[in-house]
Design a protein around this nucleic acid. Structure first.
Length: 420
DNA sequence: TCTGGGGTCCTAGGACCC
DNA sequence: TCTGGGGTCCTAGGACCC
């Protein structure tokens, strides 16, 4: 059996843990640069704030409805996530951390010894009590069905007490008939459109399709999903593995046209990629740089390009990746456009320690020690204390974060003070 | 004025090999 | 009339997730 444990409105709930007065009050959390809504409490959902709403368009509604607005605080959410996951690990040695706010637990043979519903309640109680984050638990014999069960637990918190188990054929069918096909895990916008046109309205309708049709139209991925929903397990827990791509991309606080400004950003993104590469002990063999103008500004000329550069040798050096990134940028940068966003993506990794030596050109050996030194300094006295000269030493780029909450759990000076 | 960021997997088709 | 057969690797694009 699989349990899917999902934190309710995770980012909003994190904020609420440290401001209990916000209980039952509407909360929204904004994306980077305070751009758009990426998380909502139930109360905010009820007020009709859609996911992805542009903050500036909803400003008046936020004020009128007394909605509590927060900038996203990833230091806080990341730390709260690890606390939740740690508690969940107590319940099964087999656990998959699926996302920042979700985990699959696998129970082998548990159903013989435990009442699964009771067990789900224990999990739910333990996490909520231990972290203040409310969670919902869905349990079934396949991952896809545990996702369905979780939706039910979330949708009917009173009736289910936030725990739902699908363990009979009757419950499986009832659940699938209730769930719209568009809300099935693994069926996105495109497939949902296609299916609905064919009269496939619910998850149950989907399970009645022929394997051939599903395979042909939705590939092997769709076929696995079909079986999973029919109660035949095809997906197991996935173990953590090294990343195959690493990206650093950002929207700017405003539009920039000056090459030097954009280059400084791109170099900094490349350095971030290099740091992430070193963390997993990989080197990249290719780097892609992209730039794009503001697509919302129909009145301005639009331009978007990317450039994929195959590297002459694998590297994870800040200096080398920065150099390659600015070379790639030069290839695509065009004067006269107002750029709003840029990014660097590194791909095609090889392990750091098994390097094939190139006959003509290789990564500078000296960089290895240098990077180690830079990482250590930045780790001990603060990120970005040591930079490349091509990164702006004076200007510190700041995201717009007007409603940022304190780092309650990761910065001692920002912890809550309790008076005796 | 202002609209996020970071990932994964699969498939078809082209290039190339013997 | 009639022009083989069987592979691999790579890449772009599409689909999905949170």
């Amino acid at each position: 059996m699989f349990a899917l444990v999902d934190c309710n409105n995770f980012y909003a709930s994190c904020e609420r843990v440290f401001q209990p007065k916000l209980k039952n009050k509407p909360i929204v959390v904004l994306s980077n640069n305070d751009g758009c809504v990426i998380a909502r409490s139930n109360e905010a959902k009820k007020l009709g704030i859609p996911m992805g709403a542009a903050a500036f368009e909803y400003k008046e509604i936020f004020e009128k409805e007394n909605i509590n607005v927060f900038s996203s605080n990833y230091a806080l959410y990341g730390d709260m996530s690890s606390r939740v996951m740690e508690l969940l690990s107590e319940f099964s040695p087999e656990i998959e951390l699926y996302s920042i706010d979700e985990a699959f637990l696998k129970f082998e043979g548990f159903e013989k010894f435990f009442d699964l519903n009771e067990h789900g309640k224990k999990i739910q109680y333990r996490v909520t009590k231990g972290t203040g984050i409310p969670v919902s638990v869905g349990i079934a014999n396949t991952k896809a069905l545990s996702k369905v069960a979780n939706k039910i637990a979330k949708k009917f918190p009173e009736k289910t007490e936030s725990v739902y188990v699908i363990n009979t054929e009757y419950k499986r069918i009832k659940a699938l008939k209730w769930l719209p096909v568009a809300d099935v895990w693994g069926i996105g916008y495109r497939h949902a459109q296609k299916l609905e046109k064919l009269g496939v309205k619910t998850a149950y309708d989907f399970t009645q399709l022929s394997e051939d049709w599903v395979k042909k139209n939705m590939s092997i991925v769709g076929l696995r999903l079909l079986k999973e929903l029919q109660g035949i397990p095809c997906l197991d827990l996935e173990m953590p593995s090294d990343k195959k791509n690493i990206a650093c991309t950002r929207s700017f606080d405003k539009n920039y046209s000056d090459f030097e400004v954009v280059k400084e950003r791109v170099v900094t993104f490349a350095v971030t990629c290099a740091e992430k590469l070193r963390k997993q002990k990989s080197c990249a063999n290719a780097i892609m740089v992209f730039i794009i103008t503001n697509g919302h500004r129909k009145d301005l000329p639009q331009y978007a390009r990317n450039y994929l550069l195959k590297l002459p040798f694998p590297t994870n050096s800040n200096i080398e990746l920065a150099k390659f990134a600015s070379y790639a940028l030069r290839k695509i940068y065009k004067q006269g456009y107002a750029y709003k966003k840029a990014g660097v993506i590194v791909t095609d990794f090889t392990p750091q320690n098994v390097q094939q030596v190139n006959l003509f050109q290789n990564s500078n050996e000296k960089h290895k020690g240098l990077m180690e030194m830079m990482d250590n300094i930045n780790k001990s006295i603060g990120r970005t204390k040591v930079k490349l000269a091509s990164q702006d030493p004076d200007r510190t780029w700041k995201m717009r974060q007007e409603k940022l909450s304190p780092r309650y759990t990761t910065k001692i000076s920002e912890a809550i003070k309790v008076k005796a």
